[in-house]
C-alpha cells in the first residue's frame, strides 16, 4: 500500500514520528562523534519544520559552512531522502585539527576529513533508524561543498521539488564542550514518510 503522505498536511502525531526518527538517528550520530573526538557531545532538542520550498533559504544560517550531503536509499534503491550535515568553518577546522593533532591541514586533507566525519555520522544515523524502526537506509558516498547552506542545498531541493512544493526539514545540532557545533538536517522524500507512518501504525 502506498500512502503518499501529503507533506503540507502532516498531523501533530506524524510530526512527532518524524521528530522521533530524527532524534534516534541524531542520538546515535552524537555517540559516534563523542567516540571519535573522545569528548562529551550534547544534542539539542530537534525541530521539525514543514514549509514551502520558496521559504527554505530563511531556515538556514547565513554564514559559510563546510557541508556534507548524503543521499539515502532503501533496499529497493528508492530515494528516501537526504542528510545534510553542516559544520561551521571554525568547528570543521577544529574537528579536523583535533583528529590529526595538527594546527594546519592542507585543503585536500581537510575536505576528506570532514567528508569522513560526515560519513561516520550518516552511517550511525542510518544504523539507528534500522535498529529502532526497521527502516533500512543506505547512505551514498558523501559529497562535499563549502558555501552558505542555502546555496548548497538548492540542488538537493531541486530534486525534491519535482514532486512537491513542500519540504520537511528536521534540524538538530550536536555540540561539545570545546565549542564544536554541527547542524544536521534530514530532508525526507514522501516514500520515507510513508514507510515511517506504516511502521508507527503497527506499533
Amino acid at each position: 500500500m502506498i500512502l503518499m503522505t501529503d507533506l503540507g498536511n502532516l498531523s501533530e502525531v506524524e510530526l512527532d514520528v518524524l521528530k522521533e526518527l530524527g532524534n534516534i538517528g541524531a542520538g546515535h550520530a552524537a555517540t559516534s562523534l563523542s567516540k571519535l573526538l573522545n569528548k562529551d557531545v550534547y544534542l539539542s532538542v530537534p525541530e521539525v519544520k514543514v514549509g514551502e520550498i520558496k521559504n527554505i533559504s530563511s531556515e538556514f544560517i547565513g554564514e559559510i559552512v563546510a557541508g556534507v550531503i548524503i543521499a539515502l536509499q532503501d533496499l529497493e534503491e528508492k530515494k528516501s531522502g537526504y542528510l545534510y550535515i553542516m559544520f561551521p568553518e571554525k568547528s570543521a577546522r577544529k574537528i579536523a585539527g583535533d583528529l590529526f593533532d595538527m594546527e594546519e591541514l592542507d585543503e585536500e586533507m581537510y575536505a576528506s576529513t570532514i567528508m569522513e566525519v560526515g560519513n561516520i555520522l550518516s552511517s550511525s544515523f542510518c544504523d539507528a533508524t534500522a535498529d529502532f524502526m526497521d527502516i533500512i537506509l543506505l547512505p551514498s558516498p558523501p559529497s562535499f561543498a563549502e558555501d552558505v547552506p542555502a546555496a548548497v542545498i538548492d540542488s538537493v531541493v531541486s530534486q525534491m521539488a519535482k514532486n512537491s512544493n513542500h519540504i520537511i526539514l528536521f534540524e538538530t545540532s550536536l555540540s561539545s564542550e570545546s565549542d564544536i557545533e554541527i547542524y544536521l538536517a534530514l530532508l525526507p522524500e514522501a516514500c520515507l514518510l510513508d514507510d515511517m507512518m506504516k511502521i508507527m501504525g503497527q506499533l
Binding site: 558523501p142 559529497s143 548548497v152 540542488s155 538537493v156
Partner: peptide, 16 residues
C-alpha cells in the same frame, strides 16, 4: 548555476 560541490558522488547535484 554554480557547481558548489568540490567532491561529488551524486550526479543529480550537477543541475546548475
Amino acid at each position: 548555476g554554480a557547481q558548489v560541490f568540490k567532491h561529488m558522488s551524486l550526479d543529480i547535484l550537477k543541475i546548475g
